[in-house]
Design a protein around this nucleic acid. Structure first.
Lengths: 344, 344
DNA sequence: GTTTGGCACTCGAAGTGAGCGAGTGCTAAG
DNA sequence: CTTAGCACTCGCTCACTTCGAGTGCCAAAC
């Protein structure tokens, strides 16, 4: 297994003997290999070649045989350094995605949890008779703003009044609560005949809608090109294309209901494009009982233990920083690897 | 030339005869080809192959022979649709970068002009005794905000006073004006002993600093993999890696002092990684007499006229939307292609 | 003097086949 | 149950051949 992970070449009986330092002859090992072959853990690309692990073999290795590994001190330091900046959520996640790519040299992907955010507070800053700034504080403590220029003029008094009405009438609402009726009602109670209310409500809806969608991204796709598995540019191109579609990403990860780390090996992936690649995912606590996902995509022949340890460490850090008031997930620090058997 | 652009295969005398529909025999064409070969416009990969254009040949073609082409109606409509969203500058540029990739099927790059922004206005929104929002309006009308939580409490009065002082003392300043002395002075005049001033000033500096850096990005790198020129994954990997470094991008484009469109053919590029690729750049007016750049990277064998027309159209649109008050560049709409002869 | 047909020549691409060798399965002895 | 031995398989490499597109050059033709 480990020899194949290192070299990507079929492994023969003598190589196993040498690498594992077993005190039995290659013939004995051949017999064992034959048995494993029969049981479906190994296969031969052609009759007179060594063996390579099957997906079933990888599964066994990942579930039972693989040595648990922690990140090295240098790696931990490097990851911690990335966290120390203390940036906002979105930036932090993107930084960690790049960190994952750097540490594993595989493309990494992130999927941030959807947030059913509500409005916590609306502020309007009057600039001049034609412009003002809308500042929106959401329930998850993100702040969004927009500078509005209008072709007609209004007074500071009107802006102040609008802010007051929005602050009492719109707090706690999700976007489906903001109906045309509510807007008409607000217009009436502020005496707004110029459509300022619609402008502001429009921005509120826009922000709430966009915060609802899950954010998915990939980075470091070019790393695939270094791998012998992707020496065919077409194959690489297909996978990269697949990964570049955010919908595919959310589909591949499924629900983040797994414990800490999840490994999807080759054919366990639903998508054809991923059938001979593997995906390692770690989920993190993103506050409000929501979970985000960070993961990498690589060849089936992947150093699962090392990759899992790194992602787990990164996800743990993200949980700590983004999880906010909530307690960190109970399994944090301990590496639990779960997978799904895929029917097929 | 055009045959080679289409097929990427060396072109022989008979093919030229057929494609161009010349009423002379292949022998005559052979004589002409030999002459062009001697003068350095064409070369042969090996003795018994057809001819391919040299960089010098491309230069001649681009400068003098190439038919000027406009974008098709469908393309124009598609680009216009991309503009109609009317988003903020950063998003708009990124959208147009993707548009360029889609239309040309080559990776596209953007470099946005650095802005020496200053503070136009500072607002502080008091939320509760431990938190407030900083809202920063910059001279280029972008708005930045930050939610601040502090481990000690303060009053609304203090926040109001700070906002007033910042608004009189910090407007019109660039980041180098914000010295420790100014902060001390501000602290004294507001009676702030808790370090609120430093927190706010820190954010101001952060925003001004980040707005100063040039933003450079690439998208659609994977498109290279489809090209026969990049059937060697290593070569593709080297170029993609090169492009992923923002410093390289700013270096390759040089100063945006060219008219409308600039074409850099193969060895005209300073960077070794680009020696057998070409870059087409279009510059746009980004307001305040600053210029941004949008461009694509592709094989030397590239349909320069089509690519240039598309980029020029996109850049024109960006100028219109971002150029703000300033007049659009005089050359807009007319395609001017300039290049640089590269010594060597 | 330019154009044209003819012709020998070049050289990469594609195809062929022998030899190599890593690795196998099987068998028989320990 | 392990091990040495052995015949066998089959992809890889490499030398060799063939094929053909395309060339340069020359002499005849317009």
């Amino acid at each position: 297994m480990e020899e194949y992970i290192d070299t990507a070449e079929p492994v023969g009986s003598k190589t196993v003997q040498a690498r594992a330092g077993l005190d039995c002859s290659s013939a004995t090992i051949r017999n064992e290999l034959m048995a494993l072959d029969r049981e479906g853990y190994l296969e031969q690309p052609h009759t007179s070649a060594g063996r390579i692990p099957t997906a079933k073999g990888y599964r066994l290795y990942v579930n039972e045989l693989m040595a648990h590994r922690d990140v090295s001190h240098e790696e931990a330091d490097r990851i911690d350094a990335g966290f120390s900046g203390g940036a906002e959520a979105e930036k932090l996640i993107s930084q960690m995605s790049h960190m994952a790519t750097e540490l594993t040299s595989y493309p990494s992907l992130t999927i941030s949890a959807p947030k059913a955010a509500t409005v916590k507070r609306v502020d309007l800053i009057y600039l001049d008779p034609n412009s003002f700034i809308i500042v929106l504080l959401l329930s998850d403590d993100t702040v969004k703003n927009k500078l509005v220029h209008l072709p007609f003029s209004f007074t500071q008094t009107m802006i102040t009044r609008l802010a007051a009405v929005f602050n009492t009438g719109f707090t706690g609402l999700t976007e489906e609560h903001i109906t045309p009726e509510l807007i008409t009602l607000t217009e009436r109670s502020t005496g707004d005949t110029m459509g300022l209310t619609s402008v502001i409500a429009g921005f509120v809806i826009e922000v709430l809608t966009s915060s609802r969608g899950v954010g998915a991204s990939v980075s470091g796709e070019a790393n695939l090109l270094k791998l012998p598995e992707f020496k065919d540019p077409d194959k690489a191109h297909r996978l990269i294309n697949y990964l570049s579609d955010a919908n595919n990403l959310t589909a591949l990860t499924g629900q983040p209901d797994f414990g800490d780390v999840k490994v999807l090996i080759g054919p366990e992936n639903a998508a054809a494009e991923l059938r001979d690649s593997s995906v390692v995912l770690a989920s993190y606590n993103a506050g409000d009982n929501m979970r985000g996902i960070i993961g990498v995509v690589g060849p089936t022949r992947m150093d699962y233990s090392a990759v899992a340890a790194k992602l787990s460490y990164i996800a743990g850090g993200l949980s700590r920083l983004l999880g906010g008031g909530s307690a960190p997930p109970s399994g944090f620090g301990k590496l639990m690897i779960k997978g799904e058997e895929h029917d097929g």
